[in-house]
Design a protein around this nucleic acid. Structure first.
Lengths: 169, 169
DNA sequence: CCAAATAGCACTGATTTGGTGCGCAATCAT
DNA sequence: ATGATTGCGCACCAAATCAGTGCTATTTGG
């Protein structure tokens, strides 16, 4: 489905939470106590984000996780890419890319579609995915945490988000 | 996963195919013979799109399916919405909307999140979804079939698609 | 009448997803 | 030192989703 998994949602919750706690290690306990997400699962998610290089971890009594980079330097796409498998493993997609340098395998182009050259939707589907992925790529954790007018304007999402309601919660 | 299902891909293939066959009923056989998609499954998909009001069907020997509206009046979002369940049934989402008038339940706002008011990602997640959905909404079958410069410019996807390669297949 | 096509219903196997159990290793406060 | 706290690694499970299929009935054009 065209939907973020719970794991990804939990991951984004955690990441956004850490945007407000720069420079300190935040434990999984603190996060799950705050947002009522399954502790064990959140731990798994944080572990993954850590292995993906988005978070730094520290063990021990006062341990936890911390953003490795500035919030504006980490994109939602990186989190999604880390938490959900390789999204390019679709029928109309290039063969799986093992290039660890590529954080966005879905963007890699190729010719692995078994329906080509007759498939009329190959490129369209890819364009669709590229569009979605671009959205995620160009949305930083900072944008996600507290979208300012500047962020909205500097971001391709901005136009789309103009009409989005800004809730106070 | 943040990915279109096979059903949706097949559906889009069929829809795009029909963009090039305006005014005539296209059989499932013709489509699956052309693009090598499972016949039985494609039939199921077309049935669904028909029930959703995107396609008109005609039974009998020369029967088949035909686009109900002009290709620019049907959005990818409508197809996705018809072929994949209600995408709003997520944790940070409003309760399922049974309003049949709303083709895009994901866009409906509400307060069904069981994590509010502490959840800091509720609105961000929704904005993300809204952004993705807006992309799909504002991409017509025409855009998908043969994106012209005009379509690209008139479409929010345009900016994102500028860098997308235009393959000849 | 027959062949071709959609409509309806039900079903299956494989994969993904959400979530958990448990022991080990590191680290800090006392 | 030592125990409490925290992350780490590995394996596991149940439910949901997904891709794909079987079969029959009904409509319709030639």
């Amino acid at each position: 489905m065209l939907q973020l998994t719970k794991r990804t949602e939990y991951g984004l919750i955690a990441l956004v939470h850490m945007v407000d706690r720069p420079g300190v290690f935040v434990s999984a306990r603190e996060i799950c106590d705050t947002y009522k997400v399954p502790r064990r699962l959140l731990a798994e998610v944080l572990k993954t984000l850590s292995k993906a290089g988005l978070l730094a971890s520290h063990r021990g009594a006062t341990g936890g996780y911390m953003l490795v980079r500035e919030p504006e330097l980490t994109s939602v796409a990186q989190a999604v890419s880390a938490l959900e498998g390789n999204p390019a493993s679709s029928s109309c997609s290039p063969s799986p890319v093992d290039d660890s340098n590529s954080l966005f395998p879905i963007l890699d182009s190729g010719s692995g579609c078994d329906m080509s050259p007759t498939c009329p939707i190959k490129t369209p589907i890819q364009r669709l995915r590229d569009g979605i992925w671009s959205l995620l790529q160009q949305t930083s954790l900072r944008d996600l945490a507290a979208p300012t007018a500047a962020a909205v304007n500097a971001n391709p999402l901005g136009e789309l988000l103009q009409s989005a309601q800004t809730l106070t919660y």
